[in-house]
């Protein structure tokens, strides 16, 4: 399942932050997005996910093939880890809750309410959700936030397995996941020119 983005411009808060972005992520590959804070990595991912409209350009991908994971994990504090995951599996008409719990080393925590999980454990549960959506293209926004080194390695392993099965991933991260399958795209080159500043980068206007 491929993801192709052609000449995309996207805006945050009505200000165009990125323009002319073209990228392609073929099946089995990952693309890591780099760039300074405020360059528009999150905005780009949300635009590709279809959560906000593009200013111009095209995103070619089946909307049913995409899934998104961001800073918020979409967990319900009152539900247990297993119930949270089972809900997302049911919404996507998939199974595999046990496999996903095992893959991110959460089996021992499955009956604990999400409110009693640590930040890193919540993150792992949020990442386990990707597995139960059954969707091939993962759009990941800083997936390793609050993960320790062992968990980052665990997640890299999960991601490698996903790519090996023909999945694809577009990842905004500053952490090196150690993926041989990943190319790197620096977004600095696609920064939309700020009229008032004549192209000088300023976070406030980015």
């Amino acid at each position: 399942m491929d993801l192709t983005v052609t000449d995309l411009a996207c805006a945050r808060g009505g200000v165009t932050v990125l323009a002319g972005v073209s990228l392609a992520v073929p099946a089995g590959r990952a693309l890591v997005l780099r760039g300074p804070n405020g360059i528009g990595k999150t905005t780009l991912l949300r635009t590709v996910a279809g959560l906000q409209p593009a200013v111009s350009g095209r995103v070619q991908a089946d909307p049913e093939s995409l899934t998104y994971a961001a800073h918020a994990d979409g967990l319900k504090a009152a539900l247990t880890a297993r119930e949270n995951l089972a809900f997302w599996a049911a919404v996507h008409g998939q199974g595999g809750v046990d496999a996903a719990l095992t893959a991110l080393n959460l089996t021992a925590l499955q009956d604990r309410p999400a409110q009693h999980l640590s930040a890193g454990q919540k993150r792992r549960l949020g990442l386990a959700r990707l597995l139960v959506t059954g969707r091939p293209v993962w759009l990941l926004d800083e997936p390793t936030v609050s993960l320790d080194a062992a968990s980052v390695a665990l997640f890299a392993e999960v991601l490698r397995g996903h790519l090996a099965k023909g999945g694809a991933a577009l990842i905004a991260t500053h952490v090196d996941l150690g993926l041989d399958e990943a190319a790197v795209l620096d977004l600095t080159a696609f920064r939309a020119q700020s009229r008032s500043l004549g192209g000088v980068f300023d976070e406030a206007f980015a």
Partner: peptide
């Protein structure tokens, strides 16, 4: 909306 579920529901098959 606060816990991010709304984003995920918006791109879910429903």
């Amino acid at each position: 909306f606060e816990d991010g579920s709304m984003d995920l529901l918006a791109i879910a098959p429903i």
